[in-house]
Computed example of a mutant assay.
Amino acid sequence: MAFTDITHRRVAPQPAARRTFSLRTLFDVWRSRRALARLDARALDDIGLNTERAARESAKPIWDVPANWRD
Score class of each variant (00 low, 15 high):
P15R: 05
I62W: 14
W69P: 02
A67I: 03
T25M: 09
T4S: 12
A54K: 07
P61T: 03
F21W: 14
M1P: 04
L49S: 07
L36F: 10
P61A: 06
W69S: 11
R18K: 13
F21L: 14
A12N: 04
K60R: 15
A43P: 03
A41N: 06
A59S: 15
L39S: 03
W30Y: 12
P13T: 00
L36A: 02
D40E: 07
R42Q: 11
N50I: 04
R31Y: 11
T7F: 07
W63V: 10
D40N: 15
A55K: 10
R24E: 15
R10W: 12
W63I: 08
R34Q: 14
A16N: 05
S22Y: 02
T20L: 13
R31H: 09
R33T: 01
A16T: 12
A43G: 00
K60L: 15
E57D: 10
W30M: 04
R10K: 14
F27P: 00
L49D: 11
H8N: 15
D5S: 04
R42D: 15
I62D: 13
N50F: 00
S22W: 05
A67V: 07
S32P: 00
G48M: 08
D71W: 01
G48W: 08
I62E: 04
R56I: 04
F27V: 02
P61D: 10
T20F: 09
R19I: 11
R38Y: 00
K60F: 10
L36P: 00
A35L: 14
T25H: 12
D64G: 05
A55V: 05
M1A: 09
A67P: 01
F27C: 00
D71M: 03
E57Y: 11
A67H: 01
R33N: 03
L26E: 01
E52Y: 08
F21N: 02
P13D: 06
S58M: 11
F3G: 12
R34M: 08
R56W: 04
W63K: 01
R34N: 10
P61I: 03
R42A: 15
D71Y: 10
A37I: 05
R18Y: 02
L36H: 04
D46N: 11
D40Q: 08
D64M: 12
N68A: 08
L49A: 09
R33W: 05
F3K: 08
I62H: 04
V29N: 09
N50V: 06
A54Q: 01
N68W: 14
L49T: 09
I6W: 12
R53V: 08
V29W: 01
R19N: 03
N68H: 06
P13W: 02
F21K: 01
A43T: 13
R53C: 01
R24I: 06
D5W: 05
A37M: 01
D40C: 07
T7R: 12
L26D: 01
R38A: 13
W30V: 05
D40H: 07
P61K: 09
D5T: 00
H8Y: 05
R38P: 00
Q14S: 15
R9F: 11
A54G: 02
D64T: 13
